[in-house]
Design a protein around this nucleic acid. Structure first.
Lengths: 261, 261
DNA sequence: TGTACATCAGTGAACGCGCGTTCACTGATGTAC
DNA sequence: TGTACATCAGTGAACGCGCGTTCACTGATGTAC
């Protein structure tokens, strides 16, 4: 419990003082209150002074913790990316590495669940920018976004490495994608670290992510509310399997044995 | 030019008076100014008084045209649905009816283009609700949404009727979808008019829409900006073809002859 | 263990600003005889 | 064609409200000797 609040900067050995823990708790409460406001109003917007009121404080007190409204928003965005990334990674890692089809299904379900449970946070990171918010350029938000994306990427990397990713079902015409990927990897203007990406891996990953994202955000913003829930579930399930299939992922569950890797 | 402003209610025979045309022009200018503000700020938000200022008027004058800010927003949303629906329908109808693969490709490209050119209007209709906006319940917005969706639906209807839609690539397990569709069509709680929908048609349509929507809204909100444009185009192209293929649509261009239907 | 000082969370008042909306009124445009 | 009246677009002032942020200050918590 003492290490719940790690020091971000240079690490002093001493445990956090009473004051430091209180401060961390307040910061956490501010964030939670902001999220609560967003949830209650159903938007990604919130008022600085409402947070203070709900916490039984005056508005100026918040400036002890955040330089301004944008700084709080930035932290909320980073947190949301991290949360989504963690949720996805956790679901993924409950399925053995040699079952990439199952891993993708797990990722898809957890992506969808997260978005449904936290539509405002989902919109915060993957929707339109919040009115009046100016993101710090090349800052922590893009960094967090990259980390979250990496959770999905690694699934396809591993599948490729293990030879478990068939080519996506498009025989012709992705020669041009291969050429572009090679060129841009050469020019280092793609935020992809590590070795050059096989074009079919790249294509498969983006296809899966985008298609999954489509259903997810339609549903999360309420545009599928006209379908009964059980039908929505069934359609999602079948769509996910279609997506995975055409992207070259093997059927879920077709693995050597759970547990060994 | 005189019939550009049709009377919505009971039709009087006389042509619109000078005043009526001026009024319609002002309404149009108000909407365009609101859109301009949204575009300039990159959000779906705008201030009533800013519109007036940009038009060289005072804010109270706007209340001659719209009862309040929500009424203007509602009209903007309805217009956006109609616009998107028209754009999609127009692109679709340039491809012969017996080429549903080609028709879907045309729809996809026009959906994407519209969203890229009008990200704010796209967010207005298919993103999170605007802060502070309360939609009129069961009102014109849902009606407009249904009309827009119908443009996509008809493509799949026609393909099914003509026997050009193969079953989606999922042999098993969509029996449950069929059952649910039948039940809910019986109970009339699906906003689907006309004869019962074949489950594979429904599944194919939703898969295509959702998957297309995913890429589109990721790109439209800037989440794919890290990819160079030509790579984005190539990935979109290949994704669209994968989507269509797995949904059971025939390859584009495989048709009897352009022109005859 | 006790005292003197430093740190820091939180307050209350104020600033500057701008919002959506109402209301009584003016002046121009359209209509009826 | 001309006059009398009705319609309606737009103004200017005001209302009520609330925002984000600053500043000097108080009082409690932590630190050093």
């Amino acid at each position: 419990m003492a290490d719940e609040i790690p020091q971000p900067g240079h690490e002093p050995e001493r445990p956090p003082s009473r004051r430091e823990r209180a401060r961390a708790a307040t910061i956490e409460e501010i964030k939670q209150t902001a999220l609560r406001l967003m949830r209650e109003q159903g938007t990604t917007d919130f008022r600085f002074s409402d947070i203070a009121r709900l916490m039984g404080m005056t508005a100026p007190a918040l400036y002890r913790y955040f330089a301004d409204r944008d700084e709080l928003l930035t932290e909320l965005i980073v947190d949301a990316y991290n949360d989504l990334g963690e949720a996805v990674a956790e679901a993924r890692d409950q399925i053995p590495v040699d079952d990439p089809g199952g891993r993708f299904a797990a990722v898809a379900h957890s992506y969808r669940r997260w978005a449904r449970e936290e539509p405002q946070r989902f919109a915060l990171i993957l929707g339109m920018p919040v009115p009046g918010y100016h993101a710090p350029e090349e800052g922590p938000t893009t960094e967090a976004a990259r980390r979250a994306m990496a959770q999905l990427k690694s699934l396809f990397y591993e599948a490729t490495q293990a030879g478990l990713l068939r080519r996506p079902m498009l025989a012709d015409d992705d020669a041009s994608i291969a050429r572009m990927l090679a060129e841009h990897h050469e020019a280092k203007d793609l935020p992809i670290d590590g070795p050059p990406v096989a074009p079919e891996t790249f294509q498969a990953m983006l296809h899966c992510w985008a298609s999954l994202h489509g259903f997810t955000c339609l549903e999360s913003y309420g545009h599928l509310d006209w379908m009964p829930g059980e039908l929505r579930d069934a359609i999602f399930e079948s769509s996910i399997r279609l997506i995975a299939k055409v992207a070259g992922l093997p059927e879920p569950g077709l693995l050597t044995l759970p547990g060994d890797d």
